[in-house]
């Protein structure tokens, strides 16, 4: 086992990569379940947080568990409300682990299909930021609708928001947009292109 690890550093098992990226040692989790008990969306998740932690604990030896964690809907449902981290008796930063899982799933193209809308929203959001430096709400919502296909959702809200002055038709822009493009090029884009 350990010999293999040294032979293929890229094949470091998932728990090790999580430790490296987040500093969270999943072995410390003793499965008390307090995170799942307090998680606002545990009931919607395929694997509540404590189960994700357990999947990660076993993922080193059982690749199928690593797969289950990566393809979970949970990672995308996590709201980063931090209540699990706040109450965890072992002080494990579970939201950070969820971040790491999302990044890994994106890179390996293993995003749970149910998370399509959430991902579309995030991408639309960042696209807006990439181009203007700030969030252009109108543009983003349109972009999101195109990506998600939910054309009719919220259609009735928009005119009202426009009326009360909450929606602008033109984006606000950052002056140094080239720099932002560089930041995006060196982070998100570079990462997504990496095998």
């Amino acid at each position: 086992m350990s010999g293999e690890k040294h032979a293929h550093p890229a094949a470091e098992p998932l728990p090790g990569r999580v430790l490296e990226q987040t500093g969270v040692d999943v072995a410390r989790c003793y499965q008390c379940g307090k995170c799942s008990a307090g998680c606002p969306l545990a009931a919607e998740m395929d694997y509540p947080p404590s189960q994700i932690m357990h999947l990660l604990q076993l993922a080193g030896e059982f690749p199928e568990f690593a797969e289950m964690a990566l393809r979970s809907h949970t990672a995308w449902l996590c709201l980063t409300c931090e209540i699990c981290y706040c109450r965890c008796p072992m002080e494990l930063d579970i939201p950070k682990v969820m971040d790491a899982l999302r990044h890994e799933a994106l890179r390996k193209k293993k995003v749970n299909p149910k998370a399509k809308d959430i991902l579309a929203f995030h991408r639309a959001f960042l696209d807006s930021v990439k181009h203007t430096g700030r969030l252009f709400e109108m543009g983003q919502v349109v972009d999101y609708k195109l990506r998600s296909g939910h054309f009719l959702q919220d259609l009735l809200q928009a005119p009202w928001m426009f009326l009360v002055g909450k929606l602008h038709l033109l984006p606000e822009r950052v002056r140094d947009r080239r720099q932002l493009k560089r930041i995006f090029a060196r982070t998100l884009k570079a990462r997504e292109n990496r095998p």
């Binding site: 990044h103 995030h122 960042l126 995006f184 982070t187």
Partner: peptide
């Protein structure tokens, strides 16, 4: 949320 969901460095 979008940035930290998709990329740590970003």
């Amino acid at each position: 949320t979008a940035a930290h969901n998709l990329d740590h460095d970003l």
